[in-house]
Write a protein that binds this DNA or RNA. Structure first.
Lengths: 332, 332
DNA sequence: CAGCGGATTGGTAGCGCTGCCAAAAAGTCA
DNA sequence: TGACTTTTTGGCAGCGCTACCAATCCGCTG
């Protein structure tokens, strides 16, 4: 292999080869404005012959408004965000938009820096997780003039568009469900809540609901770092060591809950008679477990889809509540 | 708070405000070329005051070479690709590169179309999964002059850079491991192999190795659609219904294997004494299972990191073998 | 056949920034 | 101090494309 030749064919060359003007080529390629069928053929033949690939950088600069959509997401380890991206990218690709992303690791400072970097690409929209942003981020987004979509949260005030569901309601319904099932000595196993503010909202509403029904949270175990199956297992082990007589445990999400489930399997703790387990997210894996996981299924892919559709349609500011579904599984 | 729908500030305006020339502002902002400390301060003050955000579209067009890196990946559901993206995006962000992506759904035709769309952004590099591309894709990539990185496969000829490991070797070692453990009646449960060519390579090498050792594959169950825990469970159920006396099953990946594990749990099939289970990928979840999953751990995040590093460093064409690790768990 | 309106087409300013080059300013040295 | 360097700086031509406008063409009318 050797150095490649930078043989960039330009629109001007296509125009020359086709014997037409540049603007005609541009019109044909974008299928915009009018041109004859004959012209179209000549242009397409030249494009084919020269192997022309339009330069979207130049195109975007010359036209108003880009077809880039920027995602500034907390993580790619948590399946939630790939799911959102998946939903969004399908819609964006259909509409010839291009997705750009960067990962904040749940760090608001990094979010601000990355949002600034994104804005430099003059995207049509910026999509972020939730409502908690630094003042700098908010100011910057407001000043940018591009659409802003806040995802997966509805507990707060949207800057522009918001798509998701209420995490507080999710926490509340989870607690109500466990209470209705008769559990009274309830514990919690979670991951770092200071960074994952949505998990924090679920937890605080969960606690408030328990409290309001006279069965306040008995114990909690918060693990540093991200959620994972291993942390869930470890968390439940620690929680039970500290408070053995719990009858139910709420986990910050399904990964953590699955870890708890594994711990019970390994220790011979029978579910749900000895201990009930409740998760959050409604991952597919929960359905395949020997005992389907009791959890709340969230519309992750749909969140991405709807968000993308609203951006493509340049919809007015709004908050779209996609809701969630409580899965009455076999673990609680 | 001023909610001015401000017209975008340009570099020229910053220059004017700072009382310097445009090129001076450009130099200061990119910290490239020489300028005095005093000038630097004046420029930065003006940038701050006006809330200037550089326009990377214009910058990229004017300069040679972009800082975009395009990912054309088969899926976001399979955790493999988010993992690769995660490794890559960390490195890219550090180096002020921007990641762009689109999803092919394992469809070579879609890959070609999306690769073409990506090329229109004139990226510094295009990253793709594996070696199997349409002639059109290959031709286009060759002609583009941008770097091409093929990921997660080494069984074939690289276009430019390749980073990953040998799937054939992985299949071979998996088979050798099971044979060494004494299993002889071995089955396979997999997902759609025609699309996921890397899984196909593992499977064919697995079979060849069994054959070479006089213990050819006894049965197989291939499920349509993507890999999932549910499909793994269903697949094993079907496989055993058809061939009950297997002593080991190789799964196309850990998700599928976990499904198989769940099936055994639900049916009271003891692992590994009655049936051994072997996966592929080495997901964290496998470590947290009551019986750690026997599998092969692949360097997914590292693949992304190394790939990104090579692109950033503009390294010469090469194939980097990151290898994999056989995890001697408790299920085989 | 001139006159018209709509369909096509080409010319050409920019879009906002970088790269190159020459000019201006600031140092250096004998 | 004058000649010569080195550091800073500004001007401006593009990068490849789109948007706008004017020119041309065509088919019909009256």
């Amino acid at each position: 292999m050797e150095l490649k030749q930078q043989v960039t064919v330009t629109l001007a060359e296509v125009a020359e080869a086709a014997g037409v003007g540049e603007s005609t080529v541009s019109r044909v390629l974008r299928n915009h404005g009018s041109f004859s069928g004959k012209t179209r053929e000549r242009v397409m033949a030249a494009v084919e012959r020269l192997g022309y690939v339009p330069n979207r950088i130049a195109g975007t600069l010359a036209s108003t408004g880009s077809r880039l959509v920027a995602f500034v997401i907390p993580s790619l380890s948590n399946i939630v965000f790939p799911d959102v991206l998946r939903g969004a990218s399908a819609v964006l690709e259909e509409n010839r938009y291009q997705a750009v992303f960067s990962v904040t690791d749940y760090d608001p400072g990094k979010e601000e820096a990355l949002a600034a970097a994104m804005l430099a690409w003059r995207p049509a929209a910026v999509m972020l997780a939730g409502y908690e942003h630094t003042d700098g981020t908010v100011k910057m987004l407001r000043a940018s003039g591009c659409r802003v979509v806040e995802l997966l949260d509805l507990d707060g005030d949207a800057l522009d568009i918001a798509v998701g569901f209420s995490n507080r309601a999710a926490g509340r319904e989870s607690a109500a469900f466990l209470l209705k099932r008769g559990y009274r000595r309830i514990g919690y196993v979670g991951h770092d809540l200071s960074r994952d503010t949505r998990a924090g909202k679920r937890f605080s509403s969960f606690c408030e609901t328990l409290q309001a029904h006279g069965a306040p949270l008995v114990a909690r175990e918060i693990l540093a770092g991200a959620s994972s199956v291993e942390n869930g297992r470890l968390g439940l082990e620690r929680l039970l060591a500290q408070t053995p007589d719990l009858d139910a445990v709420y986990f910050s999400n399904d990964d953590m809950a699955l870890g708890g489930y594994f711990h019970c399997l390994a220790e011979g703790i029978s579910i749900p008679s000895k201990l009930a387990i409740f998760g959050y997210n409604g991952l597919d894996i929960g359905r395949a477990m020997p005992q389907p996981l009791s959890t709340i299924r969230t519309p992750r892919v749909a969140t991405g889809q709807i968000a993308a559709q609203l951006v493509v349609a340049n919809a007015p500011p709004q908050a779209v509540d996609l809701g969630f579904e409580l899965i009455d599984g076999a673990t609680a």
